[in-house]
Simulated scan of single mutants.
Amino acid sequence: MALTEQQLLAQAEYLLRNRPKIDDIDNEEGLAWRADIRALFTIANRIDLKSEFLTLEPRLKSSTFRYDALPQILVIIQQLISELRLKMFGPISSAISSGQMFDYFDSVRKIIETATKDILFIDPYLDAEFVSRYLPHVHSDVSVRLLGGKFKTLVPAVDMYCKQHGVSVEIRDSGELHDRFVMVDKTNCYQSGASFKDGAKKADTIITGITDAFEPILDMYETRWEKGVVKYP
């Protein structure tokens, strides 16, 4: 059965978004999810990705090795998603008018939900409002890193969120920041023209996928992260 690129993209995003919890990966729900992945790669005629998946899949049966294998499988699905998006739309870029706060939120939410292992937010204005608005959309097995922020309100909110949901969130301070970025799995980077908590509230803004300058930007902020002062935990 042939599917359009749009249908393939929708199915891949669905599988990434609705992945089972790691402890359920070898039960009925997990087996059905894995079968859907095999079918997706077959229909997409991506024998290379299917081969990578089939190499990793047996490791999901082991309670020891599945913690290493599942993130690698999610990266394979994300690779297909990224390739389809670039082919269909080019680098992601959204122009959002003043007052269209939901459109801004929804654009950021869609980016967040593509993370499979790690997501890094860079923003000097991260606060408690940011936590309640965006962190619920990060999958529970993804590590969250926050660089910058209004620590007086950000740290207590993150602490309560982590204790309630049992997730991993780190906060660091690297000194003065001006730009706002979100880095997904160290493979995709998006720049926001406004603070994440205030996007499109009072002014027009953009969200731009960074391609040509991705590696130097990633290196710069990973270095700042490594040298940053730990604020949490």
Rank of each mutant, 00 (worst) to 15 (best):
E129W: 11
K231Y: 08
G193S: 03
F53W: 13
D212C: 02
A115E: 02
H165K: 12
D212H: 11
V230P: 01
L16C: 11
G199E: 06
A12M: 04
T4G: 09
R109Q: 08
F53M: 05
F41L: 09
I77V: 15
I207R: 00
R38Q: 14
F53K: 06
R17M: 05
L15N: 06
G199C: 07
L147T: 12
K150I: 04
T42G: 10
D103Q: 10
T42N: 09
V144Y: 08
F89E: 04
V169L: 05
T187N: 09
K110F: 00
A12L: 01
A95L: 05
Q191G: 01
A200N: 02
G209L: 00
Y161H: 12
Q79T: 14
I111D: 09
D103A: 13
D68M: 10
L80E: 07
E28L: 05
G199P: 09
L70V: 13
L135R: 12
V230G: 08
A35F: 02
R145L: 11
L218E: 13
V142F: 09
V182I: 14
V182S: 02
I47H: 01
M101S: 05
I25K: 07
L218A: 14
F41M: 09
I111C: 06
I73V: 15
M1A: 02
S51P: 02
R38L: 11
E52W: 00
G90S: 07
R17H: 14
I37S: 00
A44Y: 06
N45M: 00
